[in-house]
Design a protein around this nucleic acid. Structure first.
Length: 574
DNA sequence: GCCGTTTTCGGCCCGACTGTTTTCAGTCG
């Protein structure tokens, strides 16, 4: 049983606790455990064998025992017993916006509604309005909630959400009276997948700003329209919240609505331990109504003796402690990238020529580019045969003579075959400046087979970088089964690099693994996997997640200057 | 269910909006 499955069980245990009217704190503890398990870099089996589960903050005796049972037997008797009493449809009902455990329980127990179909019909017949706590509006909201549940998964790629957020931001900024306004929430934290858009604004008179906001032309539906907080659904289907506070309150509100929730809880806990109450309006000492003045977020952190914590780091993954000890990383920035690695050309499935890709990179201020087309195994895109490789290398040699102050590297994205061998002979492989190895076929192997396959490729002396290590496509395709920990250990042991594939749908290696990988001595390569000149700009997505992974420019290969370090990739082979 | 320099009980972050209610529970972030 893998982490995702075990995490899912704790999520359901949390919902079951709510449905069963247990202490809300119990449910919260389960939810917390679900998140911890998902973010864990250590192998669960190892932790079980070492008997060290309870060393993890948030995992006590009880939850540890449940994890042990799940890992050892693949089952959890207490969960199975509770779960059997609740129909699947009840869990689906909990996903409807506006319906929580209390109302769902009434629907289920008092009205025997156990699926979305029955719920929809009951709302249409106005059968629910007689129930205590329900009314016509509730029925309408449930119907709208069922529709959006069906229409949208409720999750969005960062770049899509970010684009819409920028549009709303610029329109809100134009509303008269708005002093400051920023995108907050998970978009500001640069999460790879987000649920909604959060915007925070500073203004004196919030009422007319709210009116202007809910009247924006691309607002499809108003969910909430209050004096200081409103929530709408945009035409695109994404939810967008606006919060308006006074200019003095703005830094606190921005921090609060940037989250994450877990980071906020941590900060509030710290505040409380110092006798300070912290909310979205300020910091208040004791019972004082007058807050500690802060002109920006940095002042808030300073008030607790903390260094400024970048939004990307606010995931409660040790950033508050690190800020207190002054050991936060100097996060990588887009301008730190000196070269572009991993682009495709019209030799395979790219749109542009080698020259067009090179000039596009040069015009963006980069010093080098590594052309990494597909190898022969990938016939669907016309992978390069050895003769094509020779032809491409000749063309690169000629271009390098012609294009000044720029270097084109001879690279390849070589397929890792099913047995872990590579798609070319040693002779062909040694003709490249840089070799990126990737899995593109046979995704459905067992975890053990896939892990061995990839590790064998990592151990191959020709390989510099392991591409998109899990093969995931966000919101589309699950990652293939692979033991990331063992793969990363192999990369570190062999002084290789792992790709941070910056295609917005990949963002693979996942940022949650980066600190572990760094600790194991792995290097990173932020690669656009560009199939056109515009695709080069994807690198920024990779920088975003690298920042979430606490990476500094020294961790990333293509932050190196090719002139200062002509054998940029040779050092990998030491 | 978790946690502990207040250590085996009694806390656990805090506030806005809605709908149904007639002062507040439920939901959400």
């Amino acid at each position: 049983m893998n982490k995702e499955e075990i995490s899912q069980i704790f999520e359901e245990l949390a919902m079951l606790a709510e449905l069963n009217d247990e202490s809300p704190f119990k449910s919260r503890a389960y939810m917390n455990a679900a998140r911890i398990i998902l973010d864990l870099t250590d192998d669960l089996e190892t932790l079980v064998n070492e008997n060290s589960l309870t060393d993890i903050e948030g995992i006590g005796q009880n939850i540890a025992a449940k994890i042990v049972e799940l890992v050892n037997t693949g089952k959890l008797k207490s969960y199975d017993k509770l779960r059997a009493l609740v129909p699947d449809g009840v869990f689906q009902m909990l996903k409807i916006s506006g319906l929580g455990p209390k109302k769902v329980k009434v629907l289920w127990k008092k009205y025997a509604i156990t699926n979305l179909g029955d719920l929809k019909m009951s709302c249409e017949r106005h059968a629910l309005k007689a129930l205590p706590g329900f009314g016509i509006k509730t029925e309408e909201n449930i119907l709208a909630g069922i529709e959006s549940l069906k229409k949208f998964s409720g999750k969005w790629l960062y770049i899509e959400a970010q684009r819409w957020a920028e549009e709303v931001l610029s329109d809100v900024a134009k509303i008269k009276g708005v002093v400051r306004v920023e995108i907050a929430g998970s978009i500001r934290r640069k999460k790879e997948v987000v649920k909604d858009i959060d915007i925070v604004a500073a203004a004196d008179n919030s009422a007319h700003i709210m009116k202007a906001f809910v009247s924006l032309p691309y607002v499809d539906r108003i969910v909430q329209h209050g004096k200081t907080k409103s929530e709408v659904i945009l035409n695109s289907g994404i939810q967008c919240d606006l919060r308006v506070v006074s200019n003095d309150e703005y830094p606190f509100a921005l921090h609060h609505f940037t989250g994450s929730k877990e980071h906020n809880v941590r900060m509030r806990g710290l505040a409380k331990s110092k006798g300070i109450k912290m909310n979205e309006y300020g910091l208040f000492e004791g019972k004082s109504k007058r807050g500690i003045p802060c002109k920006d977020e940095a002042d808030i952190f300073k008030a607790f003796g903390l260094d400024y914590i970048e939004p990307e780091l606010r995931e409660d993954m040790g950033e508050v402690d690190a800020a207190g000890e002054g050991v936060l990383p100097q996060l990588i920035e887009g301008s730190d990238l000196k070269g572009i690695l991993h682009v495709h050309t019209n030799y395979t499935d790219g749109e542009a020529t080698i020259e067009e890709m090179a000039l596009a990179a040069k015009s963006r201020g980069y010093e080098y580019i590594a052309i990494c087309d597909h190898s022969q195994n990938l016939t669907v895109v016309g992978g390069l045969k050895p003769a094509d490789v020779r032809k491409q290398h000749k063309e690169i040699d000629a271009l390098n003579k012609r294009i000044k102050n720029f270097t084109i590297l001879k690279g390849i994205e070589v397929d890792i075959l099913a047995d872990g061998s590579l798609d070319y002979s040693d002779k062909v492989l040694s003709s490249f400046d840089i070799v990126i190895a990737a899995v593109h076929t046979r995704f459905k192997m067992s975890e053990e087979d896939m892990t061995r396959r990839i590790i064998r490729a990592v151990e191959n002396p020709h390989v510099d970088i392991l591409a998109h290590p899990t093969g995931r496509l966000l919101l589309t395709r699950e990652p293939y089964l692979v033991d990331m920990k063992r793969v990363i250990d192999a990369i570190g042991n062999h002084k290789k690099a792992v790709e941070i594939n910056a295609h917005p749908q990949r963002l693979d290696l996942d940022w949650r693994w980066m600190r572990y990988a760094k600790g194991r001595g792995a290097k990173f390569a932020i690669c656009p996997d560009a199939h056109s000149t515009d695709g080069i700009d994807n690198v920024i997505n990779g920088v975003n997640v690298a920042r979430k992974g606490w990476l500094e420019k020294g961790d990333v290969l293509n932050c190196s200057d090719l002139k200062k370090c002509p054998t940029l990739f040779d050092r990998l082979h030491r």
